[in-house]
Simulated scan of single mutants.
Amino acid sequence: MFAVGLIMAVPAAHAQQAERMTGLALSSDEPIQIESDLLKIDEEASKATFTGNVKVVQGETALQAGEMIVYYTKSGSGGSVASGAADIREIELFKKVLIQSGTQTATADAGNFNMADEVLVLTGEKVVLTDADNVFIGCKLTVLMKTGQATLDSCGGRVMIQLDPKSRPKK
């Protein structure tokens, strides 16, 4: 799935450009555990909808949302998501999103992960990223997974950042 990584801030007017988000990464070699109140698979539409208290765990990364829709492409001869023979194209997250990995946390109202382009977008009235005592607040976080570059947008307001000097790596 994905993990939230540390943002190193660089000043900008209405968006905050991040240097790199090295903790934000895909892991295709670890098993994924998904729990929800209901799972509805629509093989014709190649989509699986998880609703109600959705929890996803992969390695040290955990994700929670009220609803998660997984769009997939059937691989091989008639494979399905239920058999594990499908490639995930896109994941949509709704109804309060929480992603945790180690000391890092991100919260948002909704999220979208485009697997083909490796782009994660978290949106909401208030998107909050924390790493230890460092806090980043905006309304839209876009992460380009291939490069690790991230942008935190203010959506007309201002990006807010609180940095704790004690959280800097020791030299």
Results as ranks from 00 to 15, higher is better:
residue 66 G to F: 07
residue 87 D to G: 06
residue 123 T to W: 08
residue 4 V to N: 03
residue 37 D to H: 10
residue 119 V to Y: 02
residue 132 A to Q: 14
residue 72 Y to C: 02
residue 55 K to S: 13
residue 73 T to A: 14
residue 120 L to T: 07
residue 93 L to C: 13
residue 12 A to L: 11
residue 106 A to V: 06
residue 29 D to E: 15
residue 135 V to S: 09
residue 79 G to K: 14
residue 7 I to G: 02
residue 98 L to Q: 06
residue 28 S to F: 14
residue 3 A to M: 09
residue 57 V to W: 03
residue 1 M to K: 04
residue 59 G to D: 04
residue 150 A to C: 00
residue 4 V to K: 01
residue 22 T to R: 15
residue 130 T to L: 09
residue 170 K to N: 12
residue 152 L to V: 13
residue 138 G to C: 13
residue 160 M to N: 11
residue 10 V to C: 07
residue 167 S to D: 07
residue 99 I to M: 09
residue 105 T to E: 03
residue 155 C to I: 07
residue 7 I to V: 15
residue 31 P to H: 11
residue 118 E to Q: 14
residue 74 K to W: 07
residue 163 L to Y: 07
residue 119 V to P: 01
residue 13 A to P: 01
residue 114 N to G: 06
residue 74 K to L: 12
residue 71 Y to K: 08
residue 106 A to K: 05
residue 31 P to K: 12
residue 7 I to M: 06
residue 86 A to T: 09
residue 167 S to L: 02
residue 9 A to Y: 14
residue 54 V to Y: 09
residue 46 S to Y: 08
residue 62 A to N: 06
residue 155 C to T: 04
residue 148 G to Q: 09
residue 7 I to R: 02
residue 111 G to V: 06
residue 61 T to Y: 01
residue 157 G to Y: 04
residue 156 G to W: 05
residue 110 A to M: 11
residue 159 V to L: 03
residue 135 V to Y: 08
residue 114 N to F: 04
residue 29 D to P: 13
residue 141 L to S: 04
residue 48 A to H: 08
residue 110 A to F: 03
residue 110 A to L: 08
residue 30 E to D: 14
residue 99 I to K: 01
residue 121 V to E: 05
residue 149 Q to L: 02
residue 150 A to K: 01
residue 123 T to S: 15
residue 124 G to F: 14
residue 104 Q to Y: 00
residue 12 A to W: 01
residue 164 D to N: 15
residue 131 D to G: 12
residue 155 C to Y: 00
residue 31 P to A: 10
residue 80 S to L: 05
residue 24 L to W: 03
residue 47 K to T: 14
residue 57 V to M: 01
residue 11 P to M: 10
residue 103 T to K: 03
residue 54 V to S: 10
residue 106 A to Y: 03
residue 136 F to I: 13
residue 52 G to D: 04
residue 104 Q to P: 01
residue 42 D to C: 13
residue 127 V to K: 01
residue 143 V to W: 06
residue 92 E to G: 08
residue 104 Q to L: 05
residue 134 N to V: 10
residue 53 N to V: 06
residue 133 D to Y: 11
residue 103 T to S: 04
residue 127 V to P: 00
residue 15 A to M: 13
residue 80 S to H: 10
